[in-house]
C-alpha cells in the first residue's frame, strides 16, 4: 500500500512536467484535450525569435557568472567552516547561510530599495548576478561542506610533510579531491540562477532573463504552444545538468572511497 502511495505521489510530482512535451508537439493552438495532431512548428518558431535568443544569452551569462562567484565564495566559507576554528565562527556561518531561509521576495525588495532608493543606481544584469550569488552561495557551501568533510585532513598534512607548500598542496591534493563537489556546486548554482524568476523580475533592467521573458509571454494565449516547446527544451537541459551533477557527486564519493549518504543537500 505504501508503495502504491509513493508511485501515485511520483505521478503527481511529474504530471505537470509530463504534459510539457505532449502540448509542445500538438498542432492545436489551444492547450486542451483531445490533441489535434503532431507538429514541430512550435520548436521552429523558437529558432527565429530574437527576443528569446537575447533573453537566453542574458540568462546564460547571469547563470555562468553567478555559479563561478558563488562557488568561489562557497569554497572559502566551507573551507573555513570545516578546517579552522576562529571566534564568531557559528555566527558568521549562520549569517552566510541565512539566504537559504529568506523568502526570495525579501531579498528582491531589499536590494531594490538599496540600489534604486538609496544609491539611485540603475538596474542591470549586474544587480541580478549580485542577488543570485547571495542566494546560490548557501547551496554551494552545503555541497562543498560535504566535500571538505569527507577529505581526511591527514592527506593535506601528508603532502606538506612530503615537501609541498600550502599552495601546491591545495593544487595537487585538495583541489583534485574536492573537484566533484566543485562541479556539482557549479551545476546546481547554474540551475538555480537559470530558473530564478522573482529576483530577476525585480532587479533586471532593460535586459531580461529567460524566466522574466517567459513570464511576459504567459499573458498571451497564442504564445502558449511556443512556451510549451521552450519548456520542453528547458526541462530536458535541466535534467541533463542535474544528472551530470549527481553522476559527478557519486564519482567523487567513490573516489574518496566513502559511502553514499544520498542527495545533494
Amino acid at each position: 500500500m505504501l508503495r502504491a502511495y509513493v508511485v501515485a505521489f511520483l505521478i503527481f510530482l511529474y504530471a505537470p512536467i509530463a504534459l510539457l512535451p505532449v502540448f509542445a508537439f500538438n498542432s492545436g493552438t489551444v492547450i486542451a484535450f483531445p490533441l489535434d495532431g503532431f507538429t514541430l512548428d512550435w520548436f521552429a518558431a523558437l529558432r527565429t525569435n530574437s527576443e528569446l535568443h537575447s533573453a537566453l544569452l542574458n540568462s546564460l551569462t547571469v547563470a555562468g557568472t553567478t555559479s563561478v562567484l558563488s562557488v568561489l565564495l562557497g569554497l572559502m566559507a566551507a573551507r573555513a567552516n570545516i578546517r579552522y576554528t576562529f571566534p564568531g565562527k557559528a555566527a558568521a556561518m549562520g549569517l552566510v547561510m541565512i539566504p537559504l531561509v529568506l523568502p526570495e521576495i525579501i531579498v528582491a525588495t531589499s536590494l531594490l530599495v538599496v540600489v534604486v532608493q538609496f544609491f539611485g543606481w540603475s538596474l542591470s544584469l549586474v544587480t541580478v548576478v549580485a542577488a543570485h550569488v547571495l542566494i546560490c552561495t548557501p547551496f554551494a557551501i552545503a555541497i562543498l561542506n560535504a566535500s571538505f568533510q569527507s577529505l581526511d585532513p591527514a592527506l593535506e598534512e601528508a603532502a606538506i610533510d612530503l615537501g609541498e607548500t600550502r599552495s601546491s598542496t591545495f593544487r595537487l591534493v585538495t583541489l583534485p579531491l574536492i573537484m566533484p563537489g566543485i562541479i556539482a556546486a557549479l551545476l546546481i548554482c547554474f540551475t538555480i540562477s537559470l530558473d530564478e524568476f522573482i529576483i530577476a523580475f525585480f532587479l533586471t533592467g532593460s535586459d531580461t532573463t529567460l524566466p522574466v521573458y517567459i513570464w511576459s509571454l504567459l499573458r498571451f494565449p497564442n504564445q502558449l504552444p511556443v512556451i510549451m516547446a521552450l519548456g520542453t527544451i528547458l526541462v530536458i537541459v535541466s535534467i541533463l545538468i542535474l544528472t551530470l551533477a549527481e553522476w559527478n557527486r557519486r564519482r567523487g564519493i567513490a573516489r574518496m572511497g566513502g559511502k553514499d549518504s544520498g542527495g545533494f543537500l
Binding site: 591527514a154 592527506l155 603532502a159 583534485p176 579531491l177 573516489r255
Partner: peptide
C-alpha cells in the same frame, strides 16, 4: 617524514 594513523594515501 610521517606515517599517518589513517595512512593518508592520496586516493586520486
Amino acid at each position: 617524514n610521517m606515517v599517518f594513523q589513517s595512512y593518508a594515501i592520496f586516493p586520486h
